[in-house]
Amino acid sequence: MQRAEGVKRTMAEVVAQRKNEMSPGRMFVEACAAKGLEASVEYDVTITDSLTSSRRKPRYPARNMLKVVDLSRDPRRFYWHESPPRPGDPEVDDADLRREAANRFHRSPIPELCTTTAWVQVPPDLWEDPETFESFINYRLIVRLGTAENHTIIRGEGGLLNIPGIPRMTSRGPFGSTILAACNEAEQMGGTADGLIINPVDYYRFMGQGGLMDDLERNGVFIVRTRLVDPGTAIVGDFGHGAQLFDAGRSVIRFDEPPPGTFAEPGIALKAEIYERVVVNLLTNFFIVTL
């Protein structure tokens, strides 16, 4: 049977296709063989989304919970978003039952994308072993770039923790945790809390104390464990419908001179860059909770 357009491929299909594609590391290895330390490769994809993990225990990046808009293939001028009513706004019919009915609607220009950068030092003459050099780029440089991307999305200048208007929640109310209270609040606003970003120390603390993490995952909540939210804090929200990641759809890897303080000692360095920014469409469906 022919698959309908737009149906997501299975992970097995994705892995099979990527085995037949040249990896970002292999492309750079070939450029290095031709140009040496002058090598620079521009990719027409965001390379943090170009590799599959071989971990038996998955640990997902923040980008995986967001709808990604590739501006190189889907150009946009604006995005829509909603905000809660202001004090003194006129009453709206049925807003006591459907709170979101009182929200205000907005149109804003696509914000300037943030540059996300990662660095590694190349061990001397590693490029003389092409397979090892390819692996080093794919699974050290790009993995570090993924960590930097988490920083951009979560706590960078335009990250979720710094977006004005996302409410804080400190009370668990009648629930067993503030996480569940936030999930309920998102549904009371007409959304669904389908994502949680939490520090590993809290993830494993909850795992040791009971079944909250398992309950959330069984209930369809996508969990990202990362050091980039402070212990005792988590982000809960409707990531599927309430936020987007605007992505330039391009990347660069090149040899370059790192800023002072990047490494403990001098050496040849590689830099990788991507360009993106997260926006929240539904502020009322996200919460920064105190655990």
Rank of each mutant, 00 (worst) to 15 (best):
S177T: 12
I179A: 04
E157F: 04
G249T: 04
V224I: 14
L51M: 12
I223D: 08
R86M: 15
G6E: 12
R56P: 00
Y203D: 11
G267P: 03
G242I: 14
E112D: 08
A181Y: 13
D202G: 04
L270C: 06
E187S: 15
R3D: 05
E149D: 10
I274H: 05
A4I: 13
A39T: 03
V229H: 06
R218N: 11
P167R: 14
S171A: 07
A243S: 10
R218P: 01
R254L: 08
R168V: 12
A4Y: 13
R277I: 12
L245Q: 05
V69M: 05
Y60H: 15
S177V: 08
G210A: 12
G249Q: 06
P90I: 04
A248Y: 03
M11F: 11
S108E: 09
G176R: 15
A118S: 11
P167L: 13
I153M: 15
Y204F: 15
L145T: 11
K19V: 09
W119H: 06
P174I: 14
F28Q: 10
P90A: 03
A148S: 15
R107C: 06
F287E: 02
N64D: 14
A101H: 14
V279P: 02
N184G: 00
V41L: 09
W80V: 03
T10R: 14
N285L: 07
T147D: 12
F175Y: 12
R3K: 09
G165T: 01
A4H: 14
D202E: 11
T46D: 12
R254S: 08
L145Y: 11
I179H: 02
A33K: 15
I137V: 11
T48M: 02
C114S: 07
A186T: 14
G249Y: 06
G159D: 01
V69E: 04
P58R: 13
R140F: 01
N219K: 14
G6W: 06
F239L: 13
W119N: 11
L161M: 13
E273F: 00
P58S: 04
N199R: 03
C183P: 01
L196F: 09
P75Q: 13
N138L: 12
A193S: 11
Y139M: 10
V280H: 01
G176Y: 12
D230W: 12
